[in-house]
């Protein structure tokens, strides 16, 4: 057990715990913030695995951008808070399936890689230059494809999220398909009007 192992275990515990909090938190904003902690932990894991550039990208993209994006998403949709509304009735099934899968995965991982050690020496930090060379030589075509995909996703997201033309600035009043959610019906009915008046226009 090297010092590296100890550090890793600490990081792993924090990461795992934050992940669990992410999926169980009753507060949406807390969930998003715990996601941030989880992502930071994963970034630390990357550092421990000597992937410093990936770690940096992880921090910049995930922590810096995606977490904020989620927070905005949560705020804009103003979802209600509470276990009943946040968790579906599939929760028991999800628990069983996930636990079973985790158990099986752990068994398989230990059986398959239990004896593997990383190279005895300290992990060599792969330089950014190597990464760049790999991306722009071997993987240049996938790289271009990915960039095209990113562009397409950008356009698609804009197209999907923009307000439909022809509205007079307020949200069209819509009714949920299923009115049967009695406890939240009132709230749902009020929502469009609030949004219309509370909007920037």
């Amino acid at each position: 057990m090297t010092s590296l192992d100890i550090v890793f275990i600490l990081v792993a515990v924090v990461t795992g715990g934050a992940a669990v909090m992410t999926v169980t938190s009753r507060n949406l904003v807390h969930a998003a913030l715990f996601l941030g902690v989880t992502l930071a932990g994963i970034g630390a894991t990357f550092l421990l695995l000597a992937a410093d550039f990936v770690a940096m990208v992880q921090v910049v993209v995930y922590l810096g951008a995606i977490t904020v994006l989620f927070l905005f998403g949560l705020m804009l949709t103003r979802a209600p808070i509470g276990r009943e509304t946040l968790d579906s009735r599939n929760r028991p099934m999800a628990m069983v399936v996930s636990a079973a899968l985790f158990g099986i995965l752990v068994v398989l991982i230990v059986r398959a890689f239990g004896s593997n050690q990383f190279p005895a020496t300290e992990p060599i930090s792969s330089s950014v230059a190597d990464l760049g060379m790999a991306i722009f030589s071997t993987w240049v075509f996938p790289f271009e494809v990915v960039s095209m995909m990113l562009l397409a996703a950008l356009v698609g997201a804009v197209l999907l999220a923009r307000r439909q033309s022809g509205d007079s600035g307020t949200e069209t009043r819509v009714t949920p398909i299923r009115e049967a959610l009695d406890d939240s019906t009132e709230e749902l009915d009020r929502a469009p009007a609030e949004l219309g008046s509370g909007g920037e226009r």
Binding site: S88, N90, M93, A94, V97, A100, L101, I104, V107, L108
Partner: peptide, 22 residues
């Protein structure tokens, strides 16, 4: 129509398959 149940069912199937193959 509940996608989460579909996902769960699918995963259960995967687990069964993994166990069988293992």
């Amino acid at each position: 129509g509940d996608v989460q149940r579909y996902a769960g069912a699918m995963l259960a199937g995967v687990i069964v398959l993994v166990v069988v193959f293992a």
